[in-house]
C-alpha cells in the first residue's frame, strides 16, 4: 500500500479529470483505471450555470478521493487563495500545488512553489507540490512541510515520457523514504512502467488517457502497466551489461568435433 499523508491507497495511479470526450467516458475511465484519487480544479462560475454542480455530483458518485489543484496560478497569492477556496468547496486539506513559471513549458516557478508550500503547510494543508527533478528544490519543499513530492518527467501534456532518467534515479536515491509521484509528461503506459520500475511510488497523468482514441481502454492499459512496473521493482531487476551472458548453461555441453 502507498501511504500519502497518513492515507493508504492501493492504486498507484492518480488520474486527472480534464479533456475527456464526455462525462460518461470520464466516469468509465476512472473506473477502468482503478484509481482512488482524481485531480480536480476550480474556475469562475457563470451566473445561472449549474455546470460546476453537475461535475461535482459526478465526482461524488465515483467514490474516489479528490486532489484539487491550483492549475493556472502564476503567483504565490493566487495559488494560496485558490487552495483555500478549493478546501472550502471540496472539504479536503489535500492540494496539488502548482505555481506556473513559464507559459511555454508550464514549468513550475520553484521559488514561488516553496513559498506557497510553506504558507499552506502552516495553515494545515497537505501539499502535493508539482515540481521539477531538482534535488535542492525538493529539499526546500520538504523543509517547507511537504511530505510528498511530485516531480515532472517532461512538460505537462507533452507525452514525451521520462526525458531525464538519471535525474529521476538521483531523486529516488536521495529521498528513499519520501513518497515520490511522477506528475506530468507521461504519454504511454510504458513511460509509466519505467518510472515505477525506478522505484517511484505512483504516477499522476491526465492527457495520456483523456486524449487517447479510447480513453477507457487506455485507462486500463495504464493500470496494468503501473502494476507491472511496481511488481518488477519489488522483484528486483537485472542491470544492463555490455557483453552477452549465455542463458543456457555451457557446462556439460556435447563436443561434436
Amino acid at each position: 500500500m502507498l501511504e500519502l499523508y497518513g492515507t493508504s491507497v492501493a492504486s498507484r495511479l492518480l488520474l486527472g479529470t480534464a479533456r475527456y470526450p464526455s462525462p460518461a467516458i470520464l466516469a468509465d475511465a476512472v473506473r477502468a483505471s482503478k484509481t482512488e484519487i482524481v485531480t480536480v480544479s476550480l474556475r469562475r462560475e457563470t451566473a445561472g450555470s449549474r455546470t460546476g454542480g453537475a461535475f461535482f455530483e459526478l465526482i461524488r458518485t465515483l467514490g474516489v478521493r479528490v486532489l484539487p489543484n491550483t492549475a493556472g496560478c502564476h503567483t504565490v497569492s493566487e495559488a494560496v487563495l485558490t487552495a483555500k477556496m478549493a478546501r472550502d468547496v471540496f472539504a479536503t486539506d489535500w492540494i496539488k500545488l502548482e505555481v506556473i513559471g513559464n507559459h511555454d513549458t508550464l514549468q513550475p516557478d520553484v521559488f514561488g512553489l516553496v513559498e506557497a508550500a510553506r504558507i499552506l503547510s502552516n495553515e494545515g494543508f497537505k501539499v502535493f507540490p508539482y515540481t521539477t527533478d531538482d534535488l535542492v528544490v525538493a529539499e526546500r519543499l520538504l523543509e517547507a512541510g511537504c511530505e510528498v513530492l511530485m516531480p515532472w518527467c517532461a512538460p505537462i501534456g507533452s507525452a514525451m515520457g521520462p526525458v531525464n532518467l538519471p535525474a529521476l534515479r538521483s531523486m529516488r536515491a536521495n529521498f528513499p523514504d519520501v513518497p515520490l509521484i511522477v506528475d506530468a509528461g507521461i504519454g504511454r503506459p510504458s513511460h509509466a512502467a519505467i518510472v515505477v520500475e525506478l522505484g517511484f511510488d505512483a504516477v499522476l497523468l491526465n492527457t495520456a488517457v483523456a486524449g487517447a482514441a479510447d480513453p477507457v481502454l487506455m485507462a486500463a492499459a495504464f493500470s496494468g502497466a503501473i502494476d507491472a512496473g511496481r511488481t518488477a521493482f519489488l522483484a528486483g531487476m537485472l542491470e544492463p551489461r555490455d557483453m552477452a551472458v549465455p542463458s543456457t548453461p555451457v557446462i556439460g555441453k556435447a563436443v561434436f568435433s
Partner: peptide, 30 residues
C-alpha cells in the same frame, strides 16, 4: 478582495463599494 469568504460567513458579509468578488465552482482538472 483576495480573501476567502467561507460559505457560512456569506450571510453576515457586508460588501463595500468597489469590492472585487470571485465566485468559483468545481471543474475538470489535471
Amino acid at each position: 478582495n483576495g480573501e476567502l469568504v467561507h460559505r457560512e460567513d456569506r450571510e453576515a458579509f457586508a460588501l463595500s463599494d468597489r469590492d472585487r468578488i470571485e465566485i468559483l465552482s468545481p471543474m475538470q482538472g489535471g
